[in-house]
Write a protein that binds this DNA or RNA. Structure first.
Length: 467
RNA sequence: GCCGCUAUCGUCCAGGGGACUAGGACGCCGCCCUCUCAUGGCGGAAACCCGGGUUCGAAUCCCGGUAGCGGUACCA
C-alpha cells in the first residue's frame, strides 16, 4: 500500500453523518476502513459529520457509536465532531476568500440554471464576486482535476463541466465538501476510503484542498489518496432501505446475527479473499485485506447468505459461549425469565446445530423452558385416536423407565416402536406434539430428558385428557 | 439533460489474451443420512449485456450501444 512521503503512518477515517441509524452500507465502509487500518498498522479516526443541523441529532450519534461497538470495531482517535470545528472552518474559509480562491456570490440555483441555458448544459457555472451571500469556490477555467482512485484508476473531471461549488451558506456556516476537505487535511488523513456516491464530490474536495494548501493552510500535509467502494444495494437491486429486510445494524442485531458473522459477511461484499474462501475469521480478514482486491461492482445485500454464515459461526462456537450470548439475547428480546433458567444451557446445547440466528432459538426450544405452544394443526395431525393410543404406551414406558437421561429415554421409546411395529416417527411425533405443542423441536430424546420425568408425564397426561 | 462509475451463474466473489468443456460460496433441484427441524455427505441445473474492432487466438484489450447506479443542493 502506497504511503505518502509526508506521512509515515497510514491514517484513514470513518465519517458518518448522524442523520439516521448506522446503515449496513455505512457499516461496510467502517469495516473496510478498520480492516485497512489494522492490516497496514495504521490509524483510524472517527469523525461525526454533523454540519447538517436540521437532520443531525445526538440520539443518532449515540446509536451509531453503539452500533460500531456492537460490531466490535474500534478507532484510534475521535469521535471528532465537525460541528465543534467551526472556528477552524471560518479561519480556512477566510483564507480562501483572502487568497482569491473563493468569492461571495448571491447566485441562486435558478441563476445557475439560467447560466447553463445560456452557455450550454455541459458548461459549469462561473459567478462574479459580490459583496454578500454564499461563498463559492473558484474553479479554474482551464484543465481538469484527476482523481487517482486506488480502486477505479484515474477518473478525469474537466473543469469546464464543474460548477463553482457553494462552500459556505450565506450565514457563513460551511458546507460538506468544504468541511470534509479541511478536516481531512487537519487530521492528516492519508487515505479516504468511502462509498462510490462520493466519487463525483472528489474533484470539488481536491480543488478545495489545493486552494487551502496554496493559501498556506495544512502545513506539510498533502491531499489524501482516494478509494471509492462500490455501493451496496438491497435484495431487489434498489437502494438499501427499511422497506426490504434489515437495513440498519441495529436490526441485524435484533434479528440475532453475531457481530463476527456480520463482519465476515460484509467483508465479502465488494472484496474477494483471493482464494475462494468464504468463512474467514476477523484475524484472517485483517491479515488478508487489500484495497487492491476490492471490486468495482455494486453488490447486493443478501440476508439469506448472511443467515447461512451466521449458522456456521453459531455451530462453531463453544456451547457455553453460545449459552451466555443467548441468555443476554433473550433478556433483551422479551424473555428475561428464560435468560435466568438453569436449564437454558442444556436447551442451547441441543439446539445449537439447528438454529442459524439467536432469534431462532426461542421458536425451536422455548416450549421446553416455558409452556406449550399452540398449534391446532399439529394436534389434529398427531394426537388423534391412533396418536393418543401410542402416546398412552409412551407414557407407560417413560413412567417406568430405569433412568431418565437421553439414553434411557431413547431405549424406552425405541422399544415401543418395535413392539407396536411402528415407524419411529409415528411414535416420536405424537410425543413431540404432546411435550411442545408443535411438530418442531430439538431431538426428542434430548428434549424429553431436559423436561424431566415429572413434567414430561404431566404434559403427556394433559394431551391424553384433552381430547 | 449534463458529468461520472459499473457490466461473469438468481446473489456474492474468482478468472485480466491461449491453462475456460469459465472456478468457489449462498440459494435452488435430486439422492443419501435421519424422530421433526436442522446439520452432514454426494450429484445436478445455472453466467461471460449487445455490436463492432485489435489479434493466429478475446470472458479478458479498444470503440460504440444498451442497461443499472451515483452526482448534478446555500444535504451529507
Amino acid at each position: 500500500m502506497l504511503t505518502h512521503e509526508w506521512a509515515n503512518t497510514m491514517r484513514v477515517r470513518f465519517a458518518p453523518s448522524p442523520t439516521g441509524a448506522l446503515h449496513i452500507g455505512g457499516a461496510r465502509t467502517a469495516l473496510f476502513n478498520w480492516l485497512l487500518a489494522r492490516h497496514e498498522r495504521g490509524e483510524l479516526v472517527l469523525r461525526i459529520e454533523d454540519t447538517d443541523r436540521d437532520r443531525s441529532s445526538p440520539e443518532n450519534v449515540a446509536q451509531i457509536i453503539d452500533s460500531l461497538r456492537w460490531l466490535e470495531l474500534d478507532w484510534d482517535e475521535g469521535p471528532i465532531f465537525q460541528s465543534e470545528r467551526s472556528g477552524r472552518h471560518q479561519e480556512a474559509l477566510q483564507a480562501l476568500l483572502d487568497s482569491g480562491h473563493a468569492y461571495h456570490s448571491n447566485a441562486t440555483a435558478e441563476d445557475v440554471k439560467a447560466y447553463k441555458r445560456r452557455h450550454g448544459a455541459e458548461r459549469g457555472f462561473r459567478g462574479e464576486p459580490e459583496t454578500g451571500g454564499a461563498v463559492r469556490l473558484r474553479v479554474p477555467e482551464e484543465g481538469a482535476t484527476v482523481v487517482h482512485d486506488l480502486i477505479r484508476g484515474e477518473t478525469r473531471f474537466e473543469h469546464l463541466h464543474l460548477d463553482d461549488p457553494v462552500i459556505a451558506r450565506a450565514d457563513g456556516s460551511v458546507l460538506y465538501n468544504f468541511a470534509v476537505s479541511i478536516d481531512d487535511l487537519d487530521a492528516r488523513i492519508t487515505h479516504v476510503v468511502r462509498g462510490e456516491d462520493h466519487l463525483s464530490n472528489t474533484p470539488k474536495q481536491l480543488l478545495v484542498l489545493e486552494a487551502a494548501l496554496a493559501a498556506g493552510l495544512g502545513g506539510r500535509a498533502q491531499p489524501p489518496l482516494y478509494a471509492h467502494l462500490p455501493l451496496l444495494h438491497g435484495p431487489d437491486g434498489r437502494k438499501l432501505s427499511k422497506r426490504h429486510g434489515a437495513a440498519s445494524l441495529a436490526e441485524l442485531r435484533e434479528a440475532g446475527y453475531l457481530p463476527e458473522a456480520v463482519r465476515n459477511y460484509l467483508a465479502l461484499l465488494g472484496w474477494g479473499s483471493g482464494d475462494d474462501s468464504t468463512v474467514l475469521s476477523t484475524e484472517e480478514l485483517v491479515a488478508r485485506f487489500e484495497l487492491e482486491q476490492v471490486s468495482r461492482n455494486p453488490a447486493r445485500f443478501d440476508e439469506v447468505k448472511l443467515r447461512w454464515l451466521n449458522g456456521v459461526y453459531i455451530r462453531a462456537q463453544p456451547a457455553d459461549q453460545l449459552g451466555a450470548r443467548l441468555a443476554s439475547f433473550l433478556r433483551n428480546s422479551g424473555h428475561p425469565e428464560a435468560a435466568g433458567d438453569e436449564r437454558l444451557q442444556r436447551a442451547v446445547e441441543i439446539s445449537q446445530e439447528k438454529i442459524h440466528t439467536l432469534a431462532e432459538f426461542w421458536p425451536l426450544a422455548g416450549a421446553l423452558l416455558d409452556g406449550l405452544r399452540d398449534d391446532p394443526k399439529a394436534r389434529e395431525r398427531w394426537l388423534g385416536e391412533a396418536g393418543r393410543a401410542t402416546l398412552a404406551d409412551v407414557r407407560q414406558a417413560l413412567a417406568g423407565a430405569e433412568g431418565f437421561d437421553e439414553e434411557s429415554v431413547g431405549a424406552a421409546l425405541q422399544a415401543i416402536a418395535e413392539r407396536r411395529g411402528l415407524k419411529p416417527g409415528e411414535v416420536y411425533q405424537p410425543l413431540r406434539v404432546a411435550i411442545s405443542g408443535t411438530t418442531v423441536s430439538p431431538g426428542i430424546f434430548e428434549s424429553v430428558a431436559l423436561l424431566g420425568r415429572e413434567e414430561t408425564l404431566r404434559r403427556i397426561d394433559a394431551a391424553l385428557g384433552a381430547g
